[in-house]
Simulated scan of single mutants.
Amino acid sequence: MATEDRAVVEAIKASGESTLKRAKAKAKETINQFFNVPLDIAVTGRTGSGKSTFVNRILGLRDDDDGAAPTGVTETTMERTMYEHPTMPNVKIWDLPGIGSPNFKANKYLKDVKFKTYDFFIILNSERFTENDIMLAKEIRKQKKHFYFVRSKIDNDIYSEQMKAGFNEQRVLDTIRKYCLIKLNELGNSEVFLISSVDLEKYDFEKLQNTLIDDLPFHKQSALLQAWPVCSAAALEKKIKFFKKLIWAASLATAGIAAVPAPGTSVAGEAAIAIFFLLRCYYAFGLDDRSLKRLSEKVNMPLLEYRAKSKFANAIQNKAVTTIQACAAAVTISTIADLLSLIPGVGSAVSAGLTFGSTQYFLTEGLNELANTAREIRKVAGLDTVY
């Protein structure tokens, strides 16, 4: 069809390649990276700075959840510990031992914690950054990797100051930031991100996300955007925009390329790519049970019922899986058929073989509906007044 031909031409253009054959190869590479690219994040800092709680928030877990990093008033991280993201197993958060012993040597510390494992370091502190923090940052810089200073427990600072006469929250934040930067002066143009692990929507958590994305190569951005918790309307829109940019690749990979999402997948490979793509949208937008239950508790209102209004979200929840294990979850032919049947005229494509046009239409419809559902839930929850 001419319309489909135009769509294919646009997909080739989006790939940056000159021919359909080269565009298909690029699509396969892009989608395989999208599903499987590893991202290893190191979190370090002084004992008691809230490292483990920060790790848990990135993972979307409570401190008392199964699989969460242990927290406490004493040192709980005695050796480097890896935590796999519950819905993005290619993303791993490493909780590193606290730094600060009298015999601390930055280069020895990096060797002990296997420096080359990580894509970047987050150096976290709840009070002031020390000489050890600065020495560690210098050593990381020497090794040509990125580090980010995060000042944690800002909610505690605000709470202790708000009863004082003339309290001004912005002035408190400015004072904390200025104090941190004075301590880090010898590092040059360092930046400090003020965060509260109690409420990620406040302060600099979104700014930290945006900075990380800007510094990462594109294929690593994919992993971060999928795994990072939704902390604002803007953060959600960034995720949605990113997924929309990948529809061309998912459509070409689905329509005639046996690009299996991960080794060991025993499903209808081509159609499964489309389903896995929407599964990733579902989790990245925070539409899974765990994310919505946490949000419901936070705003003290039931939100699961709003997800049920979405035919795509409802079908994924009822027929698909609750977690994605290496993008090789047990998606069945019936699951694929059920989801495809949501689009008139597309459902029969399971047995006939998906075309580029039908796949692109299916993914666009599914992504838009999941995105609008996530937007509506945030609006109902009172988190975003407009979207």
Rank of each mutant, 00 (worst) to 15 (best):
I158D: 06
I123P: 04
K108H: 14
E191P: 00
N90P: 03
T87S: 05
K92D: 01
Y109P: 08
N132S: 15
S126W: 03
V91S: 05
S160L: 03
S196D: 06
L187G: 01
Y109K: 07
K145T: 07
E79I: 05
K164G: 03
K108L: 13
I123C: 11
I154N: 02
I182A: 08
E186C: 11
T175S: 12
R171I: 09
N90A: 09
Y109C: 03
K114W: 07
D157H: 12
L124T: 09
G188Y: 02
V192P: 01
N103W: 07
A165I: 14
K111D: 12
K114I: 10
L110T: 08
E139Q: 15
V91P: 01
N189H: 10
N107R: 14
W94F: 15
I122D: 04
S101A: 13
D95Q: 11
I154R: 00
R141N: 09
K145M: 12
D155K: 09
K144H: 08
R171M: 10
S152F: 02
P86V: 09
I99H: 12
D119T: 09
R151Y: 03
I122L: 15
F104Y: 15
E79W: 04
I176N: 01
T81E: 10
F167T: 01
V91W: 05
M88W: 04
Y109N: 11
L181R: 08
E161H: 14
L187F: 05
E131G: 08
Y179G: 00
N132G: 14
R171T: 15
T175M: 04
K145N: 05
H146L: 08
S160V: 00
D157P: 00
N168K: 13
L136A: 12
F120W: 14
N107S: 13
E127F: 03
I134T: 12
N125P: 02
N189V: 01
S190T: 02
L173W: 01
L96E: 06
P89V: 02
S126E: 07
M163T: 00
M163F: 00
D95G: 03
E186T: 15
